[in-house]
Design a protein around this nucleic acid. Structure first.
Lengths: 328, 328
DNA sequence: CTGAAAGCGCTTACAG
DNA sequence: CTGAAAGCGCTTACAG
């Protein structure tokens, strides 16, 4: 330990660097150590420190697909809540994949102070022998004993169905996400069930990956059939899908919302400024990150969480893409 | 060490788990250890292991803004090249911020096997006392002794200028990025210099953050003035800016490319499917990640890199947004 | 208030 | 081929 030379003692340095000097180290020594640390540009070695303490100060977020503006907000919320005594690091799985147990096994060897897992698969939860503080995000439709923070996407879907029903739609199409994530299954099923109770029928379904181009293509292929079935609205699993529909509609000359209403889900930034603006379910991403971070923090500090399963509600944001007054 | 009990020895286990059994451990013992490891679900503790070896097996990528489809590709390339004996982890700075020395200081305490830094600031490079393998990505305009992989964005800008000149444009506007990243300065300056040599003048400039809505707004505000100056093309610092222009043009009823040509930079996935398709400079993101990963790998294995400064060329992709045949 | 000592979980020469 | 031993850089009771 380099700083030892410059100062006086050995263990004392540790006390100083970890800020545990309260009534244990003289002012003189604190000053000496501080000076030495400065001169030598010393930084506590995380490895040795962590090994001695039994765990590191890193918090790992395992996320499926960071290249989504949605996650950027979640991450911002997490960082906010976790604080800087922990080091937040991301482990990104292959694009579109949900995290698998193998991915986490190696991560666990790092002895993280805490683990945050976004959109885990059912298999993941079954196999993972959790070792330490962990909170799950976005586990829609999967039950688990681990603390989690979720969106109530089902209620969002119902609000969408209500809105469409009020606007007079009777036959709608559903453009689903091709990734098998649970949240999308829940979104669709909740919508279909609630809608049918209102006399709004989902008469056709298509799927595409979460990509504007792919969604546009899927819509282009199915639109003739949908039109023949009297479809007047397309409900999309995500805003991204909706952008594809909006784009293709413009190309083909379908007027939105006059001929066709379009809805999204997520409320990405672009949805407020697109033309027309997109009616969608706003999901409080940053808030989700913040809550997950808070829960984890509590766990890392050895406390219990008051409520293990947290649910955040979405809100319906009505914009131009479903404006009934524009309809013939 | 738990596995000891189940097997026979202590150090032997280490030999087995690290695969250094070549002529050093009997087959019987290898089998015994393997069995014990299986039964106990043992995983080598990364902390102890790293401390003993002097460094960890984690590779940290410090990136400014992961919520950009562009980075997803870079990351995929890196993962590809770095291989799975290393653990790739991301450290994300606040949105739009370039990495600062403080961010990395804490990261360094983790004793990473290697460090990848995307779009570092000049201050960053000046202050960082590099401790170990490191390669820089996207350092456009900044000189540094550290190995780096860059795009030759200047040549991309020149190709754009050539293209616009050939199409007969004489007065163009430039929509720049508000973030002060070097690459944007280089893009703009290279464009302006080369264009003026061709008789193409940049008669107006605006800036906005890298956001479709913000870009649309900036364009909306300045368009009347630009139109008055006879602007027939808008050159955007990124594809995202161009999307904003495309969107606003549609709202206001400006025909692209008939009345106004629009160009981007980066070639994000959406640019191929937008309407009209966006003329832009394709930057090989995945390739950049792959090269950076390879360079770092060499460094981590104690070898020298053959060439320290690597540069990748962009290519001009001409699409509908600059189709001169549509002009009056 | 302070230092000597043990120990965190591994790996790596080093004898046998 | 195999085990005992030292050591990686820290932290934390424990005597003084």
């Amino acid at each position: 330990m380099v700083a030892t030379r410059a100062g006086v003692s050995a263990a004392t340095v540790s006390l100083v660097t970890s800020g545990k000097t309260a009534g244990r180290v003289s002012k003189e020594n604190i000053a000496k150590v501080a000076a030495a640390v400065d001169e030598l540009g010393y930084v506590v070695d995380g490895l040795g420190s962590s090994l001695a303490k039994g765990r590191s100060n890193i918090v790992i977020l395992v996320a499926p697909d960071v290249s989504n503006p949605f996650y950027a907000k979640v991450i911002a919320g997490i960082r906010d809540a976790v604080g800087d005594e922990y080091q937040l690091l991301l482990s990104v799985t292959e694009a579109g994949q949900t995290p698998e147990p193998e991915d986490v096994k190696n991560l666990l060897a790092l002895r993280p102070a805490g683990l945050l897992v976004e959109a885990p698969s059912a298999r993941f939860l079954a196999e993972l022998r959790s070792t330490g503080p962990m909170v799950l995000l976005d586990t829609a439709g999967i039950e688990s004993a681990a603390p989690s923070v979720n969106f109530d996407v089902a209620s969002g879907s119902r609000m969408l169905a209500d809105h469409l029903g009020e606007q007079g739609h009777r036959n709608v199409a559903y453009l689903d996400s091709a990734t098998g994530t649970e949240t999308f299954r829940v979104r669709r099923e909740a919508f279909c069930r609630h809608a049918s109770g209102l006399g709004v029928d989902v008469v056709a379904t298509a799927t595409s990956t979460i990509d504007v181009g792919a969604a546009a293509l899927a819509f282009a292929q199915d639109w003739p059939e949908w039109a023949a079935k009297g479809v007047t609205a397309v409900v999309c699993a995500t805003d991204t899908h909706a952008y594809g529909v909006l784009q293709e509609a413009r190309v083909v000359g379908i007027r939105v919302p006059a001929e066709l209403a379009v809805t999204g889900f997520d409320d990405l930034p672009y949805s407020a400024t697109s033309n027309p603006g997109l009616t969608t379910v706003h999901l409080p991403a940053m808030e989700m990150g913040r809550m997950a971070g808070k829960q984890l923090r509590r766990l890392m500090e050895g406390e219990e969480v008051a409520v293990a399963q947290l649910t955040l509600n979405g809100t319906l944001v009505v914009r131009g893409s479903t404006d009934a007054s524009a309809r013939g």
